[in-house]
Simulated assay, not measured.
Amino acid sequence: MGIDNDVEQLSELTLEGRLHQRKAISVFGMGGLGKTTVVKEVYKRVKTRFDCYSWVSMSPSHNLMDVLRNVLFRFKASKGEPAMDAIYEGQLQERTYHYLQDKNYLF
């Protein structure tokens, strides 16, 4: 079956009211239904409407530092900004928070 209708609905939901508040959208269901395919397509379509964006895949055994480093790196790369130096976890969380504080972002 096609995914166009799902992609369109999720795109509208993603962009709706994005300037006024933070929003988290969960996409869930049984494995093999195409959730990742739909979300990736929405991400590709709407990402340029945000100040910065980041797509990060996580494994069940993820390392928080690696995930945070990857998130911040990809946010900065989406704006053509240089990567940061090696920093410890507390600094990484703080830098990510401050970097995103006044931005409209897609993650």
Rank of each mutant, 00 (worst) to 15 (best):
L33F: 12
D66W: 05
L100R: 10
T36C: 04
T36V: 01
T37F: 08
D102H: 15
Q101V: 04
L13F: 12
P60Q: 07
D85G: 10
V38Q: 00
F75R: 04
I3L: 13
E41C: 05
F28G: 00
Q91I: 09
I87H: 05
H20E: 15
D6A: 12
G34T: 08
D102K: 15
G32D: 03
E89K: 15
L33Y: 12
M65G: 14
G34F: 12
M84R: 06
P82S: 13
E81M: 08
Q101C: 01
Y105D: 06
G17N: 11
E12K: 02
G32N: 03
K40C: 03
E94W: 10
K79N: 12
M30S: 11
V56W: 04
R22D: 00
E8D: 10
K44P: 07
D102Q: 13
M84A: 13
I3G: 08
N104I: 11
F75Y: 13
G80C: 12
F28W: 11
C52D: 13
F75S: 01
D102F: 04
Y53E: 01
S54L: 02
Y99W: 09
I25A: 08
K79Y: 08
F50Q: 02
E12M: 03
F28D: 03
P82R: 10
L72D: 02
Y53G: 00
G29T: 08
Y97S: 09
G32H: 05
T37K: 14
V67W: 01
E8C: 06
N70P: 14
S11Q: 06
N5C: 10
K44R: 15
L19F: 11
L100C: 07
V56K: 00
Y99G: 02
P82Y: 07
A77L: 12
N70K: 01
D51S: 07
N70H: 00
T37G: 11
F50T: 05
A83L: 11
L92H: 13
W55L: 07
F28E: 02
S59Q: 04
R45Q: 14
R22N: 11
K76P: 00
T37I: 01
L64K: 15
N70C: 09
L33D: 05
V67C: 05
N63K: 14
K76H: 00
K76G: 03
S26H: 13
L13Y: 11
K44W: 00
H20V: 13
Y88V: 15
L92E: 04
S26D: 01
N5P: 00
A83S: 15
G32F: 06
E41N: 14
K35A: 07
V67A: 04
Y99Q: 07
T96M: 12
K23A: 15
L33W: 07
L10E: 01
T14P: 15
Y99D: 13
V38T: 04
H98I: 09
N63S: 13
G32L: 09
Q9G: 03
V67T: 10
A24I: 15
L15T: 09
R45D: 02
V7E: 00
V71Y: 03
E12Q: 08
N104C: 14
M30G: 05
L13C: 13
Y105Q: 01
D6K: 06
V71P: 02
M1T: 12
D102V: 08
V46G: 01
S57L: 00
M1N: 03
S57H: 03
S61G: 05
P82I: 07
G90Q: 05
M65C: 13
K79H: 10
K79I: 13
N63V: 05
D102T: 11
H20Y: 15
Y43G: 06
V56L: 02
I87A: 01
L68C: 05
Y53Q: 00
